[in-house]
């Protein structure tokens, strides 16, 4: 019994700095069983089996490691949790916008991670720790929900116009989400210093509420709301 097959069409951004002067879009076709749906990442892996020069990042293939963020038909997302059937053909794949391209779908995330590091994304509490755990009520812990789950895939920041224009100065939605994750943590004692570090006109206030970040976040997080909270805290602190 031969299975009915279908062809899926792709257009993929290709750029290898060793041989290409400028990037181009390359067409690919993949034949898969008619009835079978699959994640986009699986399809790209199959394309790579046919053309091993295609470069992209991938790791967990289940949407928790944040490796395979890319621009899929004009919208940032993770290839591993995007179903082929949800996409219009030809499926256009490009690297995340606004960051330098190293090769094909691989971008240089240096500036993204620098902005993350800038918010001091770690608990600060110089009181001597107790012998056991620091206590935190379920209500206090609940404030971290929707914040700590970030996977640093950069889908949000690279869909944000403010981040495109000022990647060195505007912290961007991913970094600000983490900034608020520590501001909101009842165990952290550096709230005032954290807020003072965010008072300039760029770090937080470049957010114009476009909400692309909320629209694309593969984990369903809401950086815009976190930024709003930071703004309220800044006003309350009277900076």
């Amino acid at each position: 019994m031969s299975e009915a097959m279908r062809t899926v069409k792709f257009k993929i951004y290709r750029f290898n700095p060793e041989v290409d002067i400028k990037p181009s879009m390359k067409d690919y076709e993949l034949t898969i069983p008619d009835k079978q749906d699959m994640m986009l990442l699986e399809a790209i892996l199959r394309i790579k089996a046919l053309d091993d020069s295609l470069a992209f990042r991938r790791s967990c293939r289940e949407g928790v490691c944040g490796s395979d963020g890319m621009n899929i038909n004009g919208r940032n997302g993770l290839a591993c949790v995007t179903l082929l059937s949800s996409l219009k053909q030809p499926i256009e794949l490009r690297p995340l916008p606004g960051l330098p391209v190293i090769r094909d779908l691989v971008v240089d995330m240096k500036v993204f991670f620098e902005q993350y590091a800038k918010v001091k994304p770690y608990l600060i509490n110089n009181d001597p720790p107790p012998a056991k755990e620091r206590l935190q009520s379920p209500a206090e812990r609940k404030k971290l929900d929707g914040l700590y789950e970030c996977i640093l895939c950069a889908c949000c920041s690279t869909s944000c116009p403010s981040f495109w224009w000022n990647p060195e100065k505007f912290i961007g939605p991913a970094g600000l989400l983490q900034a608020y994750r520590f501001i909101a943590d009842s165990r952290d004692t550096a709230k005032v210093e954290r807020l003072e570090g965010l008072t300039d006109p760029f770090s937080v206030f470049r957010c114009r509420g476009v909400m692309n970040c909320v629209e694309v976040c593969p984990k369903g997080l809401n950086p815009t709301r976190a930024i709003g909270h930071i703004r309220s805290e800044l006003l309350a602190e009277g900076n």
């Binding site: 608990l123 012998a131 206590l135």
Partner: peptide
């Protein structure tokens, strides 16, 4: 406990 002191956001019981 060290991990908790580092900031790991463990879920909590009612007593914290």
């Amino acid at each position: 406990y060290e991990l908790e002191h580092m900031g790991l956001p463990f879920s909590r019981l009612d007593n914290g």
